[in-house]
Write a protein that binds this DNA or RNA. Structure first.
Lengths: 215, 215
DNA sequence: ATCATATCGATAATTGTTTATCGATTAAGC
DNA sequence: GCTTAATCGATAAACAATTATCGATATGAT
């Protein structure tokens, strides 16, 4: 009825695995290996064979029975699908330890992300440069985002400031937020928040050490 | 049959939410608020009311109908359950941008983690200090971990080195690994790997901007 | 004292994700 | 050329997690 020729819906979980596949495939020597199979990928990454096949099916890079997938084609298909190459621009709020690390990190461009500027409220660091990126006062965030049509925001501020900064970003037209603060942000439905929650991860780690985790 | 008096199994997903509850509860003014209800927490964190109740039930801090939970007791129960206070020691391998940020970050002790030392292979940084923590050559990792009975390892090395470092940590007796490299590590069953995968998160972010995510 | 209401606690239904199964297909060996 | 074996692709089953429903209970109002 309504179904036009849309990209097939893909689950977040699958999407999160795609970069792992891509990374693994790239690490292979494409001179020696021309063809790669799902069982081989699954074994290397310690995943279920069928899961890998299902994931790859969702990006439509048809394989051939008995042999597998063409390595080169699979890599380019994955890169195309993930949009590597089309670099999105992002702004970062909170130039503390973590913020500095992210601003300085050179590897994001590989994944299609370019942090153009950092924002902070501390006069001592405003005006400085970190990793070649300027640090501006937070008040300028809205103007800059609107002017440059930036639609990714990275939050590395303390937890108590996170929601306020988040609201600011949303009002500035940011579409997706990468949140490193240990807080659940409240946003409108059409805005995506991707949490990189260290506190959550630590909870899992430390609980494992106390051997109380399920299974 | 075999079931003794064990802690009830708790899912990883629930466990990951507990720090968020704790953080939110702590942000409340315990002078003014003595009692807190599930619906209130759920609303503040944009979660389902029943989900919150179910999560809290798993740490057994019984609430009272019509009123809710005692705020102070709930906080201490959560802290007790998450083991905040009992600080686990960790080592970090890979003193690059991200590694430096984590070494310098003061907030981990709050969550029960203390990074005691960093390891690297670069002679230029070996022997230096970052955030008050020494940087040692990677070869000393095994000896130090065994001697100090460190059981958490943090990996912030480049992807192609991650598995080797991981293997080294496992052989050194590390029980849980916090992995920041965009790689799926292969480890024995009894070792926990917690991935903080930036590439995966970025994939979700950038896909959202292209409006192809399911739902 | 009784009633209405908000919340807990448990159970059931729904949804989503991973694993297992089965037939179809194709390359290699005989 | 035919058989064998390995893999893809799709479907079905199992599992896990979230959301919805319902009764019980305690608080505050009448």
């Amino acid at each position: 009825m309504t179904a036009k020729k849309e990209s097939p819906p893909i689950s977040v979980q699958t999407l999160r695995r795609l970069p792992l596949y891509l990374n693994h495939l790239k690490s292979l020597d494409s001179e020696k290996i021309k063809i790669i199979s799902c069982p081989a990928i699954a074994k290397a990454l310690n995943l279920n064979e069928v899961l890998v096949r299902k994931d790859l099916a969702s990006i439509k890079s048809g394989g051939r029975p008995r042999t597998g997938y063409l390595l080169e084609k699979l890599i380019t298909d994955l890169e195309m699908y993930l949009g590597y190459g089309n670099v999105d621009e992002a702004v970062l709020a909170g130039v503390g330890h973590l913020g500095r690390a992210l601003l300085s990190y050179k590897g994001f461009e590989t994944y299609g992300l370019n942090i153009v500027v950092g924002f902070d409220t501390d006069d001592k660091i405003i005006g400085t440069e970190v990793g070649g990126k300027k640090v501006l006062p937070l008040e300028k965030l809205t103007g800059l985002c609107k002017r440059m049509h930036v639609n990714i925001g990275i939050i590395t501020v303390p937890p108590d400031k996170a929601q306020a900064v988040c609201d600011l970003m949303v009002s500035a037209g940011i579409q997706a937020i990468w949140n490193f603060a240990p807080v659940k942000l409240v946003v409108p439905d059409d805005i995506l928040v991707q949490n990189e929650n260290m506190a959550s991860s630590l909870a899992v780690l430390s609980k494992h050490l106390k051997k109380k985790i399920k299974k």
